[in-house]
Simulated assay, not measured.
Amino acid sequence: MDKAFLEALIAFDRRPESVRLRRRTYELLQVEPGSRVVDVGCGGGTAVAELADLGADAVGIDAAAEAVAFARGQHPRCRFEVGDAQRLPFADGSLDGYRAEKLYHALADPDKACAEAHRVLAPGGRIVLVGQDWDVFAIDSDDPVVTRTIVTSSADEIANGRVARRYRNLLLDTGLDDVSCEVHTTVLTDPELALFTITRLADGAVRAGAVSEAQAETWLDEQRSRADRDRLFVAMPQFLVAGRRPVTPS
């Protein structure tokens, strides 16, 4: 996880729709002063800082040491630790809230991570997952066939690129209740973030062997031309689910 990627995450975090989505996750977590909350896969630490501003006892966990160092630099008054989503450094039933954004698609075993969330939550504790399904991007293009190939194969190349569509069932199968599901669509038309996103998709398709480097470059050239003419369009649905550890065992 290099600095350029982390800076892109921060830029994405500052978008108005990203701010609104994070605020919605805090509402669903029912954050109150003193709430013990973990943000797993915390990246640049934006959510941890905002949770702390709401009075929560918040900690950010990320598997990447460089992300934790970056977050500490951005938010020196907040707590960040290197850790594994499948082996969190918390006692059983010790947390009031668990939040993970844009994380589960990168995990080899999302079910195990969700079971770990269940373990660390106190009875009545709340969980929120939010992220994109990498096979559900709408991109305006002159070549929809290549576009679909790039999107689908990029999702194939990611560890669990389609896990977001499973979020609701994942919570239910883990034994959580009071489960709700929402979809919030992010639209990218600005060149910096739109091209950053679709370049990642094209790179993934090349790694997957679905398109050649030449095909990917031709496709990207058309998207760059669209950027020059203010004609970029990328729509990315964000799936948001929330649930609760049952107060009494089922």
Rank of each mutant, 00 (worst) to 15 (best):
E101A: 07
T25E: 14
L88E: 08
F12P: 06
L220G: 09
D96P: 00
Q74D: 06
P237C: 07
A113K: 04
L172A: 10
L129M: 08
F137M: 12
L170P: 03
Y98E: 04
P249G: 09
A202Q: 09
A115M: 00
G60P: 02
E222L: 02
V59I: 06
V19E: 15
C42L: 06
A52L: 02
A115D: 01
E66T: 15
Y104K: 03
W219D: 05
E81P: 00
F12L: 12
D39T: 05
I158K: 01
P237R: 03
F70I: 11
E217Q: 14
E17I: 13
A113W: 05
T197D: 02
E116Q: 03
R226I: 11
F233N: 06
R245Y: 05
L240R: 02
A67F: 11
A113D: 01
L6C: 05
D228H: 08
H105C: 09
A108Q: 11
K112V: 01
E32V: 09
D62N: 10
H184M: 15
T199P: 00
Y26S: 05
R224E: 06
F137R: 13
D143P: 05
E17L: 14
L28N: 02
L29E: 01
A108P: 13
S35A: 08
D177P: 07
S153Q: 11
A49Y: 14
D62F: 06
A52Q: 14
R14W: 10
S154T: 15
L54K: 13
A138E: 09
G243M: 01
E66V: 13
L95P: 00
P33Y: 06
T149I: 08
L103T: 14
E7I: 11
R72L: 03
D228F: 06
Q30W: 00
Y104P: 00
R162K: 10
A210W: 10
L171T: 00
A216V: 12
G44S: 06
Q223G: 07
G243H: 00
A117Q: 01
A49K: 06
